[in-house]
């Protein structure tokens, strides 16, 4: 376990790359859930906000040995010691790792848009609002009230749908419970995944499904050698995918 403070909660995700069919439902569900803005032309991928981005991988071989796979990438919610690369650098405390849950939050209204965190993240998990988000008139009605809309000039990123944790806690509190049951808090992408390739839960609880899957021999993390300690763990039985996950000389 990392040297930074970790509570008995450590929310993490396991994504089975072999099960992932690249259908992109996770990404669409995420955009709907988190009021992610969209523009008429989103093909400039280095300026397109997708909290959950899906990367394209292939084995580099040609016909008929060519194989491809898709790699969904939410914010990896790094546990690095003592701070995740992004929160460490923020000059205004707009992003922070919650020591009780391990979630890395980002508060857009605090953000001054210096983009230091974007530069510090090696996973491209952070996005800048290059434009003022705009919804064609009737579409404002489909905005989720649990997630505030952002404005031009600030950074945003996946929060593991932390508002769902807030709501789940609200419900538990109202019922007089302090602890959440397994599965009461699940991000939108995991809930939507039709192939059930994504599993979410408490990595600190050794009985949880995520904790078990995280120990699988098929498990790997992205760029393990950088020491960022992501809480998103991938599974694959394919060697070429493992090779693409980390720089190994």
């Amino acid at each position: 376990m990392s040297g930074n403070k970790s509570g008995k909660l450590s929310y993490g995700m396991v994504i089975d790359v072999d099960k992932c069919t690249g259908c992109m439902t996770c990404a669409v569900a995420c955009q709907q859930e988190n009021n992610v803005p969209f523009r008429e032309d989103e093909t400039n991928k280095v300026r397109s906000i997708t909290w959950l981005e899906v990367f394209y991988l292939d084995n580099g071989k040609s016909y008929p040995d060519h194989r491809k796979a898709y790699l969904p990438r939410p914010c990896l919610q790094c546990d690095a010691d003592p701070y995740p690369p992004c929160t460490f650098v923020c000059p205004v405390n707009a992003t922070q790792r919650d020591e009780e849950t391990g979630l890395v939050s980002h508060i857009p209204v605090r953000c001054i848009g210096c983009r230091y965190c974007i530069s510090a993240c090696s996973y491209h998990a952070r996005y800048f609002n290059w434009w003022d988000p705009k919804w064609p008139k009737p579409m404002e009605e489909m905005l989720t009230p649990e997630v505030s809309t952002r404005m031009r000039g600030v950074v945003e990123k996946c929060t593991f749908c932390v508002h769902r944790l807030q709501l789940a806690k609200d419900k538990a509190f109202a019922e007089g419970r302090r602890e959440l049951d397994d599965g009461e808090y699940v991000p939108a992408c995991v809930e939507a995944c039709p192939a059930k390739a994504m599993v979410f839960g408490n990595l600190s609880d050794s009985h949880s499904e995520v904790a078990k899957l995280a120990k699988s021999p098929k498990a790997f993390r992205l760029l393990e050698r950088l020491g960022t300690k992501p809480k998103v763990i991938y599974l694959s039985g394919q060697e070429w995918i493992h090779k693409l996950a980390d720089n190994v000389i």
Partner: peptide, 26 residues
């Protein structure tokens, strides 16, 4: 010009993160 929210530029004094190198630099 460089920061996305120039009118919030002074937040690095108002809400400083003392661990950030940028805070120190600013």
């Amino acid at each position: 010009l460089e920061i996305g929210q120039p009118i919030r530029g002074w937040f690095s004094f108002w809400h400083p993160n003392v661990h950030s190198m940028l805070t120190e630099v600013i």
